[in-house]
């Protein structure tokens, strides 16, 4: 047995169910088991970081939450009700927006059209307009580029667009997959500053990030995954002791 163990995933049954609760999630790609019984939870208003090396299962966890991969076992509950068998569109409608790794903006569509599709799951037209205005103020560069096709934006601008597109769904939970990947270092700081602003506004986030210090700066709590299992979890400040995290990352003793 490893000396490091994940803190047991407990929850006070009497309290309201957490916003997101994942129990014993198992996901396989063919014969390869990508997740081997992952359990974690995210409370309303929290920012939770999901850390780990490449291939640890971080993105798979997010993809399972969004319904892009079908888990083999376990459960994913949003405010107490299972969303695990729902199609991706329904999951977005239930308030989970996913800002994917590599941005995945629609390159041939304009910035405005991308934002519009971000709200595809919503029916409140006036609320959508209001949110768009808010987001364009939050990301002023998108306002100046609103009629440009997304493919012409820089990496950092595309990341902002991807973030804004996800927020257009007015999510109760935002899944963020590597927002710093492929973005110039200066812009990374901008993006995390914006994420901090969003946190203060009460947006709940589950964040996958390779950059440990950035992630732990913004997160309230964190989980460290290795080879498809939670190896370590705790309050972000407690995890700043790099040695423990490194051990959980790499499995060294």
């Amino acid at each position: 047995m490893a000396t490091l163990e994940a803190a047991p995933e407990t929850h006070d049954a009497a309290a309201a169910p957490p916003l997101l609760a994942i129990t014993d999630l198992t996901v396989s790609y063919g014969p390869v088991r990508a997740l081997k019984g992952v359990s974690l939870h995210v409370e309303q208003g929290e920012v939770v970081a999901l850390l780990g090396a490449n291939g640890a299962g971080k993105s798979t966890t997010l993809r399972a939450i969004s319904g892009l991969v079908r888990p083999r076992a376990g459960d994913i509950r949003l405010r107490g009700s299972s969303i695990m068998r729902l199609p991706p569109a329904k999951i977005v409608r239930n308030g989970v927006a996913h800002c994917p790794e590599g941005r995945r903006v629609f390159a041939s569509l304009t910035v405005a059209e991308n934002l519009r599709l971000g709200a595809a799951s919503r029916e409140d037209a006036s609320g959508v307009d209001e949110d768009r205005e808010k987001l364009l103020s939050l990301f002023p560069i998108l306002r100046t580029r609103r009629n440009q096709t997304a493919g012409t934006l820089s990496g950092g601008e595309q990341q902002q667009l991807a973030l804004a597109r996800a927020l257009m769904a007015r999510p109760s939970l935002l899944l963020l997959d590597e927002p710093s990947l492929g973005v110039a270092p200066l812009l990374v700081r901008d993006i995390f500053r914006t994420l901090g602003q969003l946190k203060r506004q009460g947006v709940t986030m589950l964040l996958v990030e390779q950059n440990l210090s950035l992630a732990l700066d913004i997160a309230d709590r964190a989980y460290v995954l290795r080879t498809g299992e939670v190896r370590l979890s705790g309050v972000a400040e407690d995890l700043r002791d790099g040695e423990r995290v490194a051990e959980a990352y790499l499995g060294s003793r």
């Binding site: 991706p88 569109a89 977005v92 409608r93 927006a97 994917p100 995945r104 903006v105 599709l117």
Partner: peptide, 12 residues
């Protein structure tokens, strides 16, 4: 352009 991203933004 990107079927996966279309799923993610909640398009049916």
């Amino acid at each position: 352009e990107d079927m996966g991203a279309a799923h993610l933004v909640g398009l049916n």
